[in-house]
Each structure stands twice: as C-alpha cells, then as structure tokens.
Simulated scan of single mutants.
Amino acid sequence: MEILASRVLFRPKDYARSVAFYRDGIGLAIAREYSGGTVFYAGQSLIEIAGHGAPAEDAPPFPGALWLQVRDLAAAQEQLRQRGVEIAREARQEPWGLHEMHVTDPDGVTLIFVQVPEDHPIRRDTRG
C-alpha cells in the first residue's frame, strides 16, 4: 500500500472555538478552508478541524496526543502565554532527554510541544 498523504482529523464540540484555538492560540497557518472545515499546517503534517459530522455527545475523548516539535521550547511557551493559551505542564527535560511542554485544546486533546536537544539520539546519523 502506498500512502499519499495523511492528516489528523478532529470533530470538535465547538468548531469556531477550536479553529480559534489552533489559528490564534497556537498560531498555526491555514492550509485550506472549505465549507465546514479548516485544515492547518503542522510541520510535515496537517490538522483538520471539521465542523461537519460532529461527535456524539457521549463520544470518548481523543485517546492520544499530538507531538509538535519546535526549535526553541522556552520561546514557544512564552509565545503561547502571550496569546493567552494556558500551559497545562511547564517546559522541562524528561528522563528520556527531550524537552517537553503540554497544552490542552478545547476538547481535551493534549498537545506535546517538544524540543530535541543537539546531543539527543534522535539527531544522530545512524547510517554509519
């Protein structure tokens, strides 16, 4: 199977509130708008906020998290604060070496902002 493209699709309880959060709070650029939806650039991925096909009232929350890599976590945290976004968990270095900060979207989805330090194994060239 060949995958040509992918994106994360959310069907929020309040479409306008979620679009404002991702556009104005997080500061993501809009890739595309259509009647009933907005698609945002998120690095090499896309996040789509759909205003159609809303979830059932008893739908379970999104069970995972979005991992969003940034160049400077401290600067990202300050920028989010200035935009009025509540930081759920302050930036800190994790035992596995990454620097992470958590934010929660209006529907309870966890956004994990990550900075990969220069000396972290993710940055190593393993080609030998």
Rank of each mutant, 00 (worst) to 15 (best):
Q69Y: 01
F113M: 15
S45G: 06
L98K: 10
V109S: 15
Q77E: 15
Q69M: 03
R123E: 12
T126M: 14
A65F: 09
M101E: 09
V70Q: 04
P12L: 06
V116W: 14
A76R: 11
T38W: 01
F21I: 01
P60N: 12
I87L: 08
I47A: 07
L111Y: 01
W96Q: 15
T126W: 10
S35E: 11
G97F: 08
P121F: 03
D14E: 09
P106S: 11
F21G: 00
I30Q: 07
D105V: 10
H102F: 11
F40A: 10
A42T: 14
V8F: 09
V70T: 10
P117A: 03
A42N: 14
F40Y: 07
A54H: 03
T126P: 08
D105C: 07
S45H: 03
L73T: 05
D24C: 06
V19E: 07
R71K: 04
T104D: 02
E48V: 06
D72G: 02
I122R: 14
S45F: 07
S6L: 01
E2P: 00
D14W: 02
R123I: 09
G97E: 13
Q115M: 15
A20S: 01
R11V: 08
V109Y: 13
D72M: 00
A65R: 08
R17N: 00
R92Y: 12
L46N: 13
G97T: 14
Y15K: 03
A5M: 09
R11E: 13
G51V: 05
V116C: 13
T126N: 11
V109I: 15
R17Q: 03
K13H: 03
L46S: 14
G27E: 08
V19L: 02
A91W: 06
A20D: 01
A56E: 13
R81M: 06
E78A: 05
E86N: 04
S18Y: 00
R7S: 04
A29E: 12
L73K: 05
D72T: 00
P63E: 03
R17W: 00
H102G: 04
W67K: 06
Q77T: 11
G25Y: 02
L68H: 02
V19K: 00
Y34Q: 14
Q93M: 13
Q82W: 04
Y34V: 10
P63K: 02
V116L: 14
D58W: 11
A31F: 14
G108L: 12
P61W: 01
W67V: 12
D107W: 13
A65W: 08
V85K: 03
A91M: 12
G51F: 01
S45Y: 04
V39H: 09
Y41V: 10
A16G: 03
H102M: 09
G25S: 02
Y22M: 06
P121E: 07
